[in-house]
Design a binder for these strands. Structure first.
Length: 390
DNA sequence: TCTGGGGTCCTAGGACCC
DNA sequence: TCTGGGGTCCTAGGACCC
């Protein structure tokens, strides 16, 4: 792992967080400009692909969806109707039956991702990748932080025709909150007073690292806002969450965070999983399950080989019809990357599972990765991206 | 109306070795 | 025969993130 800008809060540390606005949906709107201004939800499968008949494009509507998918992204118009990321599409359909539904096209989003990141890197080279549509940028070496942030926003738009939001703060924790506060198409440079005035009144979930479970436990302690958390008795937090998480909670509530930017990280594991259209039974649906199992192993093997890795730990994941999820794994003496070896090891893991219940999800994972090649095959193509706004 | 897919990190217990 | 402590590896589950 390589890091940049050193640990510890030093005076003059300026960290930006850049977040693309409604990224997947915005990329789709470049392809289908006629959908601009309409509620659009991204998350369907192949069958929700727009149809072209006599030169007229017709789109799937959310009301016609049946299945187990979730929304990946929604346009701001769809969000206004109550549709949000990770919401089941059947539920979304009741809230916005007339919304357009489009399939997820990861390959396309990946291309735009590389393009916007390249545009940023050309201006400010010290960046941390944080998923497909977010990055942290170290702006500490710039004199005019607001100026360079505006420059970056414009460069991203020039390269992709997409809007983004940027938050700037002394650390990653606050920068992330700032970009969220500035959405959409915003730029917010957090000032010292903003911690008390703007962040303390917000719910604890605002702090990235407090999820639904911790928020629920904090609520049970009558702690709802960041400010209430900042003033909580340390012993109380420690009793409920243990020493290290309690310490982190308090520091975070006070806006403290000295994590460095991680500019390069090796993958730790690679996995493939799939949720079936209907729950399958180990005996009754054996041929189908077996086919899917083989396919998952082959896909993981392909991913490993393409990226130049092999792994010693092979694991499986099953989710049953009651949503209970289990994992089993085993570690081999040698790292492997071929489908047959993965299938063999994964099969031995499967033997240790009670298969009475119907299965909803099956997954295969390879961990404890080692580099296979000194120089993995570079990712093909990056930029042949014709901005198609018109 | 039941809840995707790809990851990371942390905790905790047991095996095993010194 | 019993006691004990440190360290590492492995496995399972869970919280959290995008």
């Amino acid at each position: 792992m390589q890091t940049h800008a050193g640990a510890g809060v030093r005076p003059g540390r300026h960290i930006a967080h850049l977040d693309m606005d409604a990224f997947f949906a915005s990329v789709e709107l470049l392809r289908y400009p006629e959908l601009r201004g309409m509620p659009v939800v991204i998350g369907g499968g192949r069958d929700t692909q727009p149809q072209e008949r006599d030169g007229v494009r017709t789109f799937s509507r959310l009301r016609n969806y049946t299945g187990r998918g979730v929304a990946s992204t929604a346009t701001y118009e769809a969000r206004a109707l109550g549709v949000f990321s990770a919401m089941g599409l059947m539920k979304a359909a009741r809230r916005a039956p007339d919304a357009v539904l489009l399939p997820v096209d990861f390959a396309e989003y990946k291309r735009y991702s590389r393009t916007f990141k390249a545009a940023v890197t050309a201006i400010a080279p010290h960046i941390e990748d944080y998923g497909i549509d977010e990055i942290f940028i170290d702006l500490s070496d710039f004199d005019d932080v607001a100026g360079v942030a505006r420059h970056i926003k414009q460069a991203v738009f020039d390269a992709t025709a997409l809007r983004c939001s940027i938050g700037v703060a002394p650390n990653k924790l606050l920068a992330k909150i700032a970009s969220e506060l500035s959405k959409p198409d915003g730029l917010l440079i957090l000032q010292p007073d903003d911690l008390h005035d703007r962040i303390w009144p917000m719910p604890v979930r605002t702090l990235h690292g407090i999820g639904p479970k911790s928020a629920q436990r904090l609520a049970a302690m009558n702690i709802h806002t960041v400010g209430e958390l900042a003033h909580a008795a340390p012993e109380r937090l420690q009793a409920a969450f243990g020493l290290s998480y309690a310490r982190w909670l308090l520091a975070a509530a006070h806006g403290q965070d000295d994590r460095p930017l991680v500019t390069h990280a090796e993958p730790k594991s690679m996995s493939r999983e799939t949720t079936f259209a209907r729950d399958l039974h180990a005996r009754h649906d054996k041929p189908m399950l077996s086919t899917m199992f083989d396919r998952l192993c082959a896909q993981v093997a392909e991913d490993l080989q393409r990226k130049g890795y092999a792994g010693r730990t092979v694991g499986i994941k099953l989710r049953f019809d009651d949503f209970h999820t289990i994992t089993r794994d085993c570690t081999l003496p040698e790292a492997i990357a071929d489908a047959a070896s993965i299938r063999r090891a994964a099969g031995s893991c499967l033997k240790r599972v009670n298969l009475e219940r119907r299965i909803r999800l099956l997954g295969v994972r390879v961990g404890a990765l080692e580099t296979l090649r000194a120089n993995p095959v570079p990712v093909p193509d990056t930029i042949p991206l014709l901005p198609c706004w018109s």
